[in-house]
Each structure stands twice: as structure tokens, then as C-alpha cells.
């Protein structure tokens, strides 16, 4: 059967669907930033930016950029009414102190038990840069990863054990990917959902790992 990958926007919308009203959320740089565009207007979500802002708003109109008001990716943003600014020590107290409900990060690899590798692809010539990833990975109440399930070469980015340098140990709760949503548990991967047309067996073949079925919902069909 033919299956279709989620586009980047569809994936962002899938992540946004699971963010509850009233949540405090930190969106990592790159792809996770897109999630902000898909949060339903019926939900009020407080966006935290590691560089010292709570209540972050959308990008400014062209010509109104103020580079004293930027997000973690250093792009110009706005502040919503009710938003606040604070210094770095306070910002990371919010992160480490378990005050952020959800952070969404990109990843190079995630292990079945939720180890995360997203700061260094292991190339010894690369200039290393970690930013706030290690703090976010272990500090948020829930860490979600948003990524393609497979590399361009077709290898699974969900692995038994990460081969790239780790960002955090047993910290990822959920993996939102272009093909499936998965949960990392101490007992291994558990399926949350699949894109239309992809079977559970085909998913297991693609990742090369056993995936437990979703828990049977008592009211479900």
C-alpha cells in the first residue's frame, strides 16, 4: 500500500495537536519553530524562549524587526501582551527547575529508551556547539523530538543505542516523525500513530526495531 510522509507543516500541526491549552512550551531552533504556526487559536500556549522571554509572539511585520527582540535562533520575534523579559539565570532556572511543560527539539538520533543525540554529528572536524539543548533535554517536564524517521540514506534515526554524542540520557518521551508518532518507554518503543497507508509491520521493518502496539483504549473500537 502507498503511504505519504507528513510534510514539515503537517508534522508541525501533528505536534501542535498534542499541546494542551495553558501549556508552557519551549520550541527548539529549526524545525520545531514551525509548531508555533499550528497551535489552534482556541488554545492559549505560553512560549518560552531560552534567551529570556515568556509569552513570545510571531515574527514582526516586514520593516518592524527589532534585533533586541529575538528568539533562540536569533530571528526577530514579537512579545505578546502579558509577556515578560528576564535574565539568563532565571530563564534556565525555568528550564532546569521543571517549570517548562514541554520542549520540542530536533534530533540526529533517539534511542528506544529516550536517549537523545542532537548537538554533534560526531565529525571530529566540526566546530561543536551545544547551546541550551542539554538543559532543555533534561529540564522540561516532557521532551518531545520532531524529526524525519529516516536519514537521507534510509537509515533509521531511532536506534537501539545512539552512536552520536549524547545530549541527554532517557529524556525523550515522544518522537513525532514524518511517518509515525512513537513513545520511548523503559521497555522500548510504543506506537502512538502511523501515517495513512503505513502498516505496523512496515514501520518495524523501516526502523529495524520492535514497536509495541498502542495501549488498547477501553472505549475504542
Amino acid at each position: 500500500m502507498i503511504y505519504q510522509r507528513r510534510t514539515k507543516d503537517q508534522l508541525a500541526a501533528r505536534v501542535a495537536r498534542d499541546i494542551p491549552d495553558g501549556a508552557v512550551v519551549n520550541l527548539g531552533i529549526g524545525q520545531p519553530t514551525l509548531v508555533a504556526n499550528h497551535i489552534a487559536s482556541s488554545r492559549e500556549v505560553l512560549l518560552h524562549s531560552e534567551n529570556g522571554m515568556l509569552g513570545m509572539g510571531p515574527a514582526p511585520h516586514s520593516g518592524e524587526e527589532d534585533y533586541d527582540l529575538i528568539n533562540a535562533g536569533k530571528q526577530p520575534v514579537t512579545l505578546l501582551p502579558g509577556g515578560s523579559y528576564f535574565a539568563h539565570a532565571d530563564s534556565f532556572a525555568m528550564i532546569r527547575g521543571r517549570h517548562i511543560d514541554i520542549c520540542v527539539l530536533g534530533a540526529f538520533q533517539v534511542s528506544v529508551t529516550g536517549d537523545l543525540a542532537n548537538w554533534h554529528a560526531g565529525d571530529t572536524n566540526a566546530i561543536p556547539a551545544v547551546g541550551g539543548a542539554m538543559d532543555l533535554a533534561v529540564g522540561a517536564k516532557q521532551t518531545w523530538v520532531m524529526m524525519d524517521l529516516l536519514t537521507r540514506q534510509g537509515n533509521s534515526k531511532v536506534v537501539p543505542v545512539c552512536t552520536y554524542p549524547l545530549t541527554g540520557v532517557s529524556c525523550v518521551k515522544r518522537i513525532y516523525s514524518d511517518l509515525a508518532t512513537l513513545e520511548c518507554t523503559p521497555g522500548g518503543l510504543r506506537l502512538v500513530d502511523l501515517v495513512d497507508g503505513l502498516t505496523h509491520a512496515e514501520l518495524e521493518r523501516l526502523v529495524g526495531l520492535p514497536v509495541m502496539p498502542p495501549p488498547r483504549s477501553p472505549a475504542g473500537p
Partner: peptide, 29 residues
């Protein structure tokens, strides 16, 4: 790591001799 950087600086200013943080545990850093 960014939060460790901020807290190491804060610790210096606050007269703290050292601190334990969960950030980076089990990593190269």
C-alpha cells in the same frame, strides 16, 4: 551548556563554591 554557563557565572557572583546540575550528565561535556 548554556544554562550551566549562566549558573556558573551566577554562582561566582553569589559566592557559591560549586553546584550540582542535571544538565550534561552522561554526555561528553
Amino acid at each position: 551548556p548554556q544554562g550551566t554557563l549562566a549558573e556558573r557565572i551566577r554562582a561566582a557572583g553569589a559566592g557559591i563554591g560549586a553546584f550540582y546540575t542535571p544538565t550534561g550528565h552522561g554526555t561528553e561535556l
